[in-house]
Simulated assay, not measured.
Amino acid sequence: MLKKFETLIALDKTDRKILDHLQKDGSLTNQQLADKVGLSPSPCLRRVRALEQNGVIVRTATILNHKKLGLALTAIILIGMDRHTPERFAAFEEAVSAYPEVLECYLITGHDADYMLKVVVPDMDHYHHFLLNQITRIAGVSGVHSSFVLRRVLDNTALPLGYLS
């Protein structure tokens, strides 16, 4: 869960270059990264460690191809809650955090929903089972609207760093 108030970290041009390269390829060795950003390995590693310690780099992940693993169905689920209390929201967030099918969960505004989930499952039968036996059984869920992804047009994990000064 995100902290209520995050401290902003000042980044210089070299930090932004490091982050840009790591977002594109997190498997770069320190030597490869240092070469790409124009540093020697020791200062490059110190900068990466500082970015990790300051919470700018949260973790390194490997992106998998859903379909090649048999996870062909991606659903976006809008969830309405019966009561808008901190306890109800905390219980919902704890429950969905335990489901490996849920890749993303957002508390949202601007819709007739309180949460938006991104879910990946093998097929419609699995989705139906997941929806009826897990999501709708969470205390406080009062409405569910599902949409299904037909095609990924853009699937990017990299943050745009070019506008940072």
Rank of each mutant, 00 (worst) to 15 (best):
Q32V: 00
A10M: 05
L154I: 15
T62W: 07
H145Q: 10
T109Y: 13
A139I: 10
I63G: 03
Y163P: 03
S146R: 11
Y163N: 09
L2R: 03
M1D: 03
S165I: 00
G162H: 11
R46W: 09
A95R: 11
P160I: 04
R151T: 10
G55M: 06
Y99C: 02
S142N: 13
D15I: 02
S40A: 14
G110H: 01
E94P: 06
L22K: 07
M81K: 09
L117R: 04
D12H: 14
D15A: 02
T7H: 14
T60S: 12
D155N: 08
L164N: 01
L69A: 09
V58F: 10
F148I: 15
K118D: 01
S40P: 06
D123Y: 05
L45W: 10
V119R: 09
S42D: 06
L33S: 02
V149N: 04
Y106W: 15
R49E: 09
T157G: 15
H145N: 08
A75F: 04
N54W: 08
R47V: 00
L8W: 07
F89A: 14
D12V: 09
T29G: 12
V37H: 02
L51K: 05
E101H: 10
V102G: 04
L159C: 06
L69S: 01
K67Y: 11
D20Y: 06
R88M: 15
V102Y: 12
T62D: 09
F92V: 08
M81N: 07
L103D: 13
T29Y: 00
R83H: 12
P122S: 13
L73V: 10
H126K: 08
